[in-house]
Simulated scan of single mutants.
Amino acid sequence: MSECADRPTDSQRHTMIAVAAYYLAERRGFAPGQAEADWRLAEQAIDAMIASRCLTGRTDDETRARLIRNALVLQETAGGRAVPTTFDTPSETVQP
């Protein structure tokens, strides 16, 4: 796998993980007691997206959040398995 020259910064990665963790918590109705598990799952999902798509630091916040949410929806649809997301443009994203 080739290395992407424009990988997100540590700060951008942290923000992406926070967004994904929020969506995971939302999916389970914000029930208390699972924040750490949400964070770990979010971290795995974001790292997979970065590795497979080279999600860049140049992706704007709105598009990034939409891609993250759609990837999590696709994972849920596939029974929680990691599902590669290969959206090239925001117009190709899945709208739940």
Rank of each mutant, 00 (worst) to 15 (best):
M1F: 08
M1Y: 08
C4V: 12
C4W: 14
A5C: 06
D6W: 08
R7C: 12
R7S: 11
R7G: 07
R7D: 07
P8V: 12
T9N: 03
T9C: 03
D10F: 14
Q12L: 11
Q12R: 10
H14F: 07
M16C: 04
I17E: 01
V19T: 13
A20W: 03
Y23Q: 00
Y23N: 00
E26S: 02
R28E: 00
G29V: 10
F30E: 03
P32H: 00
Q34S: 04
A35V: 14
A35Y: 03
A37C: 05
D38Q: 11
D38P: 09
D38K: 09
D38A: 13
D38W: 09
W39I: 08
A42N: 06
D47S: 11
D47V: 15
D47M: 08
A48K: 04
M49S: 00
A51E: 05
C54N: 01
L55F: 11
T56D: 05
T56M: 05
G57A: 13
G57K: 14
R58N: 02
D61A: 09
R64D: 01
A65Y: 05
I68H: 04
N70F: 02
T77A: 14
A78R: 12
P84V: 14
T86E: 11
F87E: 11
D88Y: 10
D88R: 15
T93R: 13
